[in-house]
Design a binder for these strands. Structure first.
Lengths: 215, 215, 215, 215
DNA sequence: GATGAATGAGGGTTCATTCAT
DNA sequence: GATGAATGAACCCTCATTCAT
């Protein structure tokens, strides 16, 4: 019934999306101050002028980039269906999800780091902050309750604590891959090493949450 | 033959030190690209020209700044005397040390983040990289062995894994204080909340390492 | 054959008029180079595109603005009925008219200044220059002749000289209100001070024109 | 005795002065908004960068330009020696001075017009406003007193009124040369016409001030 | 050894205007 | 006829750095 969108020569949304994507890549690679308008234009196969046409300023583009990667995380989190799984499987699935998301979205990590350098100034200014709050805490809360009820999880685990722990263990090594590789004797950029690291992390979380951990 | 007069050498060193300190502060607050030579000169109560005189370039100063904060960490780690404590106390002391160091040296976290944005380019170029490798892994290794021997620690814990876990749990919430506070319902900039977080983290590590955790 | 519907033609004219008025205001406040298409569009509750639709270019709008304020002056001058008054009253009426027109049309002064900055480039290009020539010189000429004949005005006064003198004395203080107020000790933006100034100016003109001035 | 200033390759004052002069010219010709940094640099045989080095911003340069032309006027006014002349000659000398200054400094007129467009914003911000106040009002006051005492000047003439009148009659035709020439039938850009105009103006002032005017 | 003067290159941004329907 | 989308050129300004004593 509905027409497939005609490929217009002047396609507002497509141009905007290309610029946004280019902005995410550039900010992720170079931070806010290091990002160059010219490079963004080139990556987007557009002109520097168009960046200002659609986003008003470098800061406006950065805000949009940030909102975009946060929205992607929230959407992915929202698509998790932990309820369909038993508590232990649900916990593992959640861990795996976080790790995979960080692995597949290094731009998220970089943009978040950059935003923290700016003390979350842009995020707080964002009109859409409310929409970015994730349902994941509520989901974890349900998971923990089910685990407690089934006698497999310890009582009194806070869902936010759980979230932060899982996030920490994944985020840190990915965000600091390069310095850690240089300073420790371990190359944290190799997939195998990362894989090993992550199995350990899941173990750590399991031992914290479960009454009788697998190991 | 003749040494330059002590007074002058002192001034030289003092000026250099002021610039270095100013650089650390500026890079920590604004990242590499966002740092401004003029502000560094002002903070150091010196001139922009002197920055080049002593450090050659912006990058030279950044490298020195990075080396400085890494050296400070290594020195502090080296001063740890875990051998004087029992395994459990030693583990707790190590955890406490890491947390305190991160809390008291936010510039370390920021500079490391910035350096990872640059894929550790400066760190790898550093002449002094070898000197920055910390003795802490060896110390943890000894600690773990003692704990195993005494039957209080589980067998087969890897010291690097342990180090990464403790670091992760501390680093993440401090580095991402601002975004987490904006997105979660929890203000991770308040000392009380941080304190609570840290107790949980120590628990997590203990449950991972110890055979019969305290909780 | 068929005229466009009256309604539409009215809208056309109304939009054009709003843009013209907005242009006059904007050019008066900011000069030619300082005027902004965007502000003009906003003031006119129209779009920037419409400015080009109706006036072709920024310069086209400026020319129209200039013609508009000159036409308003010529029309007002044309409406003067000096012949109905005695010579002295006529002279005073003329003076009062000039002063009032400048007071009530600061945009005239500003646009004229701007146009002189451009060496009257636009005015000379104007197709309608001929229509802008005022009948006022002729009227003054008649007034002076009557005054001479009646023995109240000195002989040989040139009507253009008279016009320039009256205009000078009014224009200068209004055009330079702000700098004069800053540099002299007298606030030439206050109505009372301006009023006093104007009485003096009329005296000056009278003493020049009349044989036995009132003072 | 005193050394002639050595022509240095890097001559701070000379470079600054060239830029300032270039700025005065450019602002006079194009107004503030119309002035172009690049043209200023070219006129000054320097670089655009140097403008910012010495004056901080376009506005900074404009302020300096304004102060410069006002200072030149004040200095010239200060050099007037009206006391050495009789009242009538003094009055005429003053008139001649004003006219000559305006004629020889068209940049003064243009800058003052521009500044009024900006509502004297820069002048009021100027640190040196106090120094720009002219001694000329005091000098005119003395002149008027002497004239009254000698019975050649009318009583009660206000020196500021006198100043404003003389200035008005000169400034107006010079500032509006181009539009007046286009609209009146008289070419106010020709020296002869201007000369004639000015004789009339002096007459006007004389008839206002003197008891028995020459004409 | 120390410093004021100078600068090329490029930064983000805005301008008046035209394209394409 | 009327309008959103798009744009090349240039704007003012700042960057990290070097020159020349």
């Amino acid at each position: 019934m509905s027409e497939p969108p005609v490929r217009k020569r002047r396609d507002r949304e497509a141009t905007r999306a290309r610029i946004l994507k280019a902005g995410i890549g550039e900010f992720a690679r170079h931070g806010f101050a290091g990002a160059r308008g010219e490079r963004i234009a080139q990556r987007a196969r557009s002109s520097e002028r168009m960046v200002y046409y659609y986003f008003g300023s470098k800061e406006g583009l950065f805000r949009a980039a940030l909102e975009s990667v946060y929205a992607a995380l929230r959407d992915a989190e929202g698509a998790l269906e932990l309820d369909a799984l038993g508590p232990r499987d649900g916990l593992e699935a959640f861990c795996r999800f976080v790790w995979r998301h960080y692995c597949e979205h290094p731009e998220f990590i970089s943009l978040v780091n950059t935003e923290n350098l700016h003390q979350a100034r842009h995020l707080r200014k964002s009109q859409h902050l409310g929409e970015l709050v994730s349902p994941v805490i509520g989901m974890l809360s349900g998971l923990l309750r089910r685990g407690e009820r089934d006698g497999v999880f310890r009582c009194g685990i806070d869902p936010v604590d759980l979230y932060l722990s899982v996030a920490s263990l994944g985020y840190f090594v990915l965000s600091n891959q390069h310095t850690l590789s240089a300073v420790l004797g371990r190359d944290l950029r190799s997939p195998q090493v990362l894989e090993r690291h992550w199995r350990t992390s899941v173990q750590i979380v399991s031992r914290y949450v479960c009454i009788a951990p697998e190991g």
